[in-house]
Nucleic acid binder design. Structure first.
Lengths: 210, 210, 210, 210
DNA sequence: TATGAATGAGCGTTCATTCAT
DNA sequence: GATGAATGAACGCTCATTCAT
């Protein structure tokens, strides 16, 4: 087993990785993925360019680390929500609130997670082609809801896409406009629209449904 | 007022800008934003690289021009839809179908329009002038619907964001997965969800609404 | 057919390639292969680094160009010597003199031609695995000599290696020591040793031969 | 004179230098000169990178040390051969066999010793001190042979160069082609060519000689 | 003395931009 | 106005060297 010195070193190395990852995250959030260069990350982390390569073999590994370290916790929380023994409605609400809160506090990550081709490839690989996890999560909750009789979507995957797209775009707009409305309230609004629809007259809905 | 020679010159210049913009658009659709280099645009337009700079001060200006040229036709159609003397429901359906069809047939443009950081920054300026075009359009239709009593959204701008986000993400996923479902049907599905919601039991909705 | 402007441009481009190739050659001769960086070549050619890439797609292409443009003429001369309808002895003398004179006036090229792994690979590819050309040339002359009864080597390929190794090393030493003995005389000396051997007593030779 | 502690320290330092040099040698033989990085040497030696710099001021000094350590055993053997009280012919044969065997069993070293520009530059200095070791050795044996009347070379140094160049190139080709012919036989072949020459007709030799 | 994290110059390469023609 | 060669800053990455511990 590792002695004290070694454990200390490992801890320091881990802290450095975290610090660099954090710097990368900040660059990502402030300047977007295109501006995520090793130089800028190093600058942001207050270290030299070469030093980054003491902790990450290459840029891809850094990106992967950021993805895993930063996004995976949210995904894990999503898994916990999915694993609960409760109704789909409650799960859906929890999922929406969780992702909304999560991405509200991590500007730029949504893009990074869902848009960047490199990240997308890494997601696929690390998730063993399970389909993009978040989409899959929402889809499964919706399917559960359908079988419980509380949701009525014909194509759960498609609706999952709509929900994620809506969450993402709403958050981005908010961040862009510099507004800072409470995440809770925004999540509520999204849930309301997706659950009840905007139509004032419920009967119309039945007709469309036929 | 400009004399004939000058007008002729302006016309020619405008045609050149159009040609270059079209070339840029084609590069964008075929190879994506990362491959949008001045070299390739010039090549595609059949002119020299330096010539591009006779019509656009820099790449950013070209991108801005492309952005405006891309949205223009769709935006004009949107304005026509908005100007119709019909109900908000019909207008909304038309808008969704229009944008869905538009972006379905312009692969990669949505990303370019709404995601690229450079474009996004430029959009601010353009959109500040244009009153946040698409969002504004949807928002106004929704507001009309509310006053007509057919829609029940408390914050029309926010719902407009959700709709656009959903449209965009659905289209992107489709393109990414290589699927090619009919735009009409997809638009229908989005309208259905956004109008009627997913909740199977209308009564729940009333409660949430209170 | 190309008009005058275009032909002029082609000529200029060709001159640039030549100039850059020449610069590369000089770097090669003065500092060796390890120092052959694009920066240095550009510097030597009096142009910017990026400009090199207007004429060569990458470093490998530049190296290949240098090889083809600089070494191939010698190889062609070798082919002409081989094609002559004369005795192997005359051919051998011509070959040795040609290579000796050639490499005497192109310091560092021998290394570049026979030692560098990249060049070696390019040679192989461009010569379609014909075997390193020069070795093959010498080997064939020796074989001809054996069949003519003027040479007595049991393994022509091995002797070809010895001759080339000797030529190369002698030239290098000379260049390194800054000596400038006439190439003609040096070639003579090599031919003498390889043809007659150093043994003072011919009879010894017969014994070894048995 | 140094006290015991100091001598002990010197001994330890010498052992470290040896170990590092050995590690460098192994890297050299296994991966070639391009892969000879301080990191790899330290790794191979089982010490830290920084520690290398406690024993060698820089990479160049390490290379120089390796060079000297490489040649040393062969050189010592060469000196023993030279010191024998026997004829030049026997000495030459011994020398050729020794070097051939030596480099045959140390893949890649010849290149390192005689070809690498850094080493070459360092060799100058080392060899100026040591009087161009191997070349000098061969040269002296040849000179002895001339005075004994068994060799007939006009310029012993030049012939020494030829022999070394031939040995080196033959070995390299063998290694490159992956062949593994017995060193003894190869040495024999080289000796045969250099002693007796390739000319089938001894009389020709006399003519050339005149 | 030994360590290995940190450094920074340098590598091959790309590309927006300039400018003499 | 049109050209395209030239530029130079920037990219991801490597590695000899330094230095606080």
């Amino acid at each position: 087993m590792a002695n004290l010195t070694e454990r200390c070193r490992e801890f320091a190395a881990s802290a450095m990785k975290d610090g660099i990852g954090q710097a990368a995250l900040e660059v990502l959030q402030e300047r977007g993925y295109e501006a995520l260069t090793i130089d800028r990350v190093a600058d942001r982390a207050g270290i030299s360019k070469g030093c980054v390569y003491n902790y990450f073999r290459n840029k891809q590994e850094l990106i992967q680390y950021v993805f895993e370290r930063i996004v995976e916790p949210a995904e894990q929380e999503a898994q916990q929500i999915l694993a609960r023994s409760c109704g789909a409605m409650e799960k859906l609400e929890s999922l929406v609130r969780m992702w909304f809160g999560y991405f509200s506090s991590h500007r730029g990550l949504f893009d990074f997670l869902f848009r960047d081709p490199v990240v997308r490839q890494l997601c696929y690989e690390s998730q063993r082609k399970k389909d993009a996890q978040a989409l899959d999560d929402f889809g499964r909750v919706l399917a559960q809801g359908v079988s419980e009789g509380v949701f009525r979507c014909r194509n759960c995957g498609a609706v999952a896409e709509m929900i994620i797209g809506a969450i993402q775009f709403v958050i981005e707009r908010q961040l862009e406009l510099g507004e800072q409305r409470p995440a809770e309230q925004e999540a509520e609004r999204i849930l309301d629209v997706f659950l009840q629809g905007m139509a004032a007259n419920p009967r119309e809905r039945v007709e469309v449904q036929q």
